[in-house]
Design a protein around this nucleic acid. Structure first.
Lengths: 235, 235
DNA sequence: CGCACCCTTGAAATTACTCAAGTTCAGTGG
DNA sequence: CCACTGAACTTGAGTAATTTCAAGGGTGCG
C-alpha cells in the first residue's frame, strides 16, 4: 500500500505524434491538427509489479493506456472479499469510467512491470468534443471491456475449479500456444476464478501432475492446449 | 425458439420527439434539428415473456431501448451451459455492440412483457457522426452496462449460494424495499447465480422458511432487506 | 383424464472450503 | 557462511456446501 504511489516512475512527456504503438492505442485515428487540441501533458510512466495505478478511493483525473505489461482490476465486496474482474493488456485503456463519473470503480494494480500513458480526463473530453475521430476508438474500448467482462463471467466463473483454471490458461496462452505463460500468485488465481487460494494451488498441482501444463521455470508454464480444452468442457 | 420472431408485436413507428419517457432514453439530449437526421423508422414493439429480441446468430441491425419490462442477456458456453450475464431494465439499451461489430454477443430474452423501441444501427451511426449530443448518452450506456457487468460478477458470482441469492434479492428490491419482487424461474435463478436449479430451489425455500422473504403470491415475494443483508455478508 | 412442465425434496457422491501444519525460498543480520 | 525470518505456496484431514441422480408433487391445458 505504502509504496504504491512512490513506485511510479515518470518517463517523460509523451510525444503522441510519434508513438511507437500508435496503431494500437486510443489516439490511433487522430490527425495532425487534432493533436494541437491536447493542451495538457500526457505522461509516460512505469510501475513495478504490485504498484497501484489508481484506486477506487479519491477522484480519478486520468485514464491510462497500457503500453506494456499486465494490469489487474480489482473490486471489493463490503465484507472485504476481493475479485479480479478483468486483466488489461497492452492497447487496453484503464479507467474509462472517469469520463462519465468522477471516480474509479476498481483498484488497478500492476501484475508485471507496466508502462502506461497517463492521459488527463480533460484531454479526452476536449478531443471528444472537437473531433469525431476519437469516438470510434472510445466505443471500441468500451466494447472491448464489456465483452471481456461478459466472457470473464461465463468462462471463469462457471463450472468446476478445474474447468475454470483450464479456461483461464487457454485464454492466457492465446493464439500462441507454444509461448510460455506466467502463472499468477495463487491468491490472484483464486480471486480471478472465484475459488480459494488452496483450491487454486491444488488444481495447479493436479494440472502439472497430469501434464496439462509443464512448468519450465518457477511460475512459468507451457500449456497443453488440447488437453486443457478437454478439461474445460468436461468437469 | 420457434415463437421468438412471430411473437413480436409491432406497435407503430415511434415519435421520438414526443416520447413519454424521453428523459430516460438514449435520445434524451437531442434537439429539434437533430431529429431530422433520423431517416429510418424507429419501431415500437412489444414482446411477450419468453420471446427473443435478438440472438447471437445472424447479423444485428438494431439496438433496442427498453421502455418497460425486463430482459435477460444470455451467453452460452461451448458445452451448452448458459449464463445470464445481465438484466436490462427500462432505460437501458440492448445490443450496443452492433455499433462496433456487426453481430450481437448475447441472446436477449424477455422475462416479462417487454416494450421496446427498435433503432436501426444506421440511425445511431448517423446521429453519432453529426451531433455530439448523442455521445454523452452513448458513453453513459456503455458505462452503465460495464458497471453492471462488474457488479454482477462480484456480487452474484462470489460466495455461497445463500449469499448470492440474498444479494440478488436486495438488488431486485432496489430502493423500494416494500415493493413486491417477482421471482424468476429456478432455472433462470441458477443461470444468474452460477448454481444449479436444485440449489436455487432449496435456497429459495430456506429463505421462505427463515422469513428472509415472504411469498405473497406465486413467485412474488416481499423481501426482508435487513435480514437479507445479513445473509449476504456472513456465509 | 392424462400429459407436460416446472418445481420440490431426498440421499448419495462429489467438490470445495476451512483450519492447521509443513515446505520452500529469498532476504537479513549475526 | 549460516541461521533466522517472513511470505508465499503446498498438503492433509475434517467439514461444509453443492451437485447429481432420482422420485414425487402441483398446476394448467388439450
Amino acid at each position: 500500500m505504502r509504496r504504491s504511489q512512490i513506485d511510479a516512475a515518470w518517463k517523460g512527456t509523451a510525444e503522441c505524434r510519434n508513438c511507437g504503438i500508435r496503431d494500437l492505442v486510443l489516439f490511433a485515428d487522430l490527425t495532425e491538427p487534432d493533436f494541437s487540441l491536447i493542451h495538457l501533458p500526457i505522461d509516460e510512466m512505469t510501475f513495478p509489479p504490485g504498484a497501484t495505478l489508481y484506486d477506487a478511493e479519491g477522484d480519478g483525473h486520468s485514464v491510462f493506456t497500457i503500453r506494456s505489461g499486465l494490469v489487474k482490476l480489482v473490486q471489493y465486496l463490503p465484507d472485504g472479499t476481493q475479485r479480479i474482474v478483468r486483466l488489461l493488456r497492452p492497447g487496453a485503456v484503464a479507467g474509462l469510467e472517469v469520463l462519465v463519473g468522477t471516480t474509479h470503480q476498481h483498484t488497478a494494480v500492476a501484475l508485471q512491470e507496466v508502462a502506461v500513458c497517463r492521459i488527463p480526463r480533460d484531454v479526452i473530453e476536449r478531443l471528444s468534443r472537437e473531433t469525431p475521430r476519437l469516438h470510434r476508438q472510445l466505443m471500441q474500448r468500451w466494447h472491448q471491456a464489456l465483452q471481456q467482462a461478459d466472457d470473464w463471467l461465463t468462462e471463469l466463473s462457471t463450472g468446476s475449479a478445474r474447468a475454470r483454471l483450464a479456461r483461464l490458461l487457454i485464454q492466457l496462452a492465446g493464439d500462441a500456444p507454444d509461448r510460455p505463460v506466467r502463472l499468477f500468485s495463487r491468491e490472484d488465481l483464486g480471486a480471478m476464478l472465484g475459488i480459494t487460494m488452496e483450491t487454486a494451488s491444488r488444481t495447479v498441482a493436479e494440472f502439472k501432475r497430469q501434464g496439462l501444463v509443464r512448468e519450465i521455470a518457477p511460475n512459468v508454464a507451457l500449456c497443453n492446449v488440447p488437453e486443457l480444452r478437454e478439461a474445460s468442457g468436461i468437469d
